[in-house]
């Protein structure tokens, strides 16, 4: 059972801000799903490989790569909330205390 404090920690990892009411709500709902998924702990998976993709993947050497046209700077910036015309603008990542 997740506690509201644990939910707050998860929310921070996910870069979400949640209210006290939401902490309680999500603690209950996420716990329900995790409790349901507890059945997986009972399955014998000794020697079973994990499936990350269903495709028969193999390493590909990139020797055939060729430079081809890609997004122009103008297009790359077109949907940016804030830009100086050359780059994306963001608030300060470091403050004086850092």
């Amino acid at each position: 059972m997740l506690t509201p404090a644990e939910v707050e920690r998860i929310a921070h990892l996910a870069r979400l801000t949640i209210t006290d009411d939401e902490k309680v709500l999500y603690a209950r709902q996420l716990s329900q799903v995790l409790a349901y998924a507890e059945q997986l702990a009972l399955v014998n998976v000794d020697g079973v490989a994990a499936t990350a993709t269903v495709l028969p993947v193999h390493s590909i050497l990139r020797s055939g790569d060729r430079v081809s046209p890609s997004l122009s700077r103008e297009d790359a910036l077109r949907n940016a909330p804030r830009t100086d015309g050359i780059s994306f603008e963001v608030p300060a990542a470091l403050t004086d205390e850092d």
Binding site: L34, A37, L40, V43, V45, V48, A49, A50, T51, A52
Partner: peptide, 11 residues
């Protein structure tokens, strides 16, 4: 959770 789910996915 995640790795175990991927293994059961194999089954």
């Amino acid at each position: 959770y995640y790795t175990r789910a991927q293994k059961v996915r194999t089954l």
